[in-house]
Design a protein around this nucleic acid. Structure first.
Lengths: 248, 248
DNA sequence: TCGGATAGGCGCCCA
DNA sequence: TGGGCGCTTATCCGA
């Protein structure tokens, strides 16, 4: 069984070599920077990545309870009782006081691969550009990501009566902020082009009741569109994935 | 050196006991649910927490490249070549194919502590409630977190001329969406109370130029207010923290 | 670098 | 459970 003092030496060495480091330990965390926080002693998982990202995870939840972004610097010291990790970057600092270590690992990681992800809002906009009738018959999209001073319009075009039409896509459930966003664009277009007749369409799988009310109050409309999932067909062939049933 | 097959047995056992599990491994990840994704083979850190949260970390960056939320279920199998972790919840599933394991740890974590965090938007609103002159002379706040159908107003009160005044706080830099938020509240109040004179104030450390223009177009105003950091005084006494200089 | 917007956002509160 | 929204949001993308 290694002592805390020994760990601090190994840790310092692993840091120098830019290994990925994973520690299970009991520690307390202090943070000051964009906000201020203190986390009393408890069991945590610490991760320091090769890019100097530092994560502190509690036993539950998806998000780290504390963290430092990549590019931070870390130094280790041993004060006779605790192993202390001090981290800082240009705007923030953190101090982790480690009382005991349950496990310790470090590893040079090799990973050049990037994730391939589909079904994003951008994919929705692409799909609408290729298949405008998803919005309505006669809709003619002209451009994507149209830039205005008041924001970026997802899809910009005209309807069958040649009215300027703005489409804002939401990949999940459209809410109040989606409506205000659409409204902001519509007003900007009216203003800059000097036209009074601008249609606004919110395209999403669904919409909250309040958002729908606000949408109608403003004379805009909702169209049900689901984001595409290109890989679904691929996965349909992978029977193992769909026949799988897990236990708890 | 344990074989993959042996690991799969240990892993299954650790899962049953709701230990926190940390694995350094080479794996590929497939996900389908709110979107679809595929991540080819590479070295990753896997974490499964006691609440069944699953995180997949690459060697860099703050965020997991893939994850499953707490409450998911996980089952392990060994297909003769790879250890396969299949995870699912009501809407999503993930499959991790583990080719090799670099390290493996599990641990029953004990952590009843919660983080104490200050300097949030809520703290800003508290500060303004206690010291209304931060907004302007004569401002009288009446309530915090006023609920309306169209959203929650941060601070609600009257100015020295008794005009209804709405304050929206932003802890960092106020942007266009902050302005539309304020505007939405102002309109809702005008509408519901049948008054035409509602003032809107955006309180933040700073504001983007476009947001400021839109704010003025709508007759609202900006007040520079910084979020409080109560622990700063405390930390001032901790010389070690401030005199610290890291390497790298 | 700043600004604007999305995210498989997450997590929290409250109806 | 769903709506609304802040977040030490992070991350991406364009000017």
């Amino acid at each position: 069984m290694l002592k805390l003092e020994d760990y601090s030496v190994i840790l310092r060495n692993a840091l120098d070599k830019s290994h990925a480091i994973v520690i299970g330990c009991n520690c307390a965390v202090k943070y000051s920077g964009r906000a201020e926080s203190f986390l009393p002693e408890g069991d945590r998982i610490l991760i320091i990545k090769e890019d100097k990202t530092l994560l502190v995870h509690q036993p539950t939840g998806s998000n780290p309870v504390n963290y430092m972004k990549s590019g931070s610097s870390h130094i280790i010291s041993f004060d006779g009782e605790k192993c202390v990790l001090k981290s800082k970057n240009s705007k923030e600092f953190m101090e982790i006081a480690i009382k005991s270590i349950h496990f310790f690992n470090y590893l040079k990681m090799s990973d050049g691969k990037s994730i391939v992800l589909t079904g994003t809002e951008r994919d929705m906009a692409d799909m609408i550009m290729k298949n405008p009738s998803l919005i309505e018959e006669g809709f003619k999209p002209y451009s994507q990501e149209e830039h205005t001073k008041y924001g970026f319009i997802d899809v910009f075009g005209t309807d069958k009566f040649n009215n300027v039409t703005i489409v804002e896509c939401k990949r999940y459930c459209a809410d109040l902020s989606g409506v205000t966003q659409l409204r902001r664009y519509a007003e900007k277009i009216k203003d800059s082009k000097g036209i009074s007749n601008v249609r606004g369409i919110l395209a999403a799988p669904r919409i909250t009741p309040n958002a729908e009310k606000m949408l109608k109050d403003w004379g805009f409309s909702f169209v049900e569109v689901k984001p595409p999932k290109y890989l679904e067909k691929f996965d349909k062939n992978q029977q193992s994935l769909h026949s799988f049933t897990g236990s708890e």
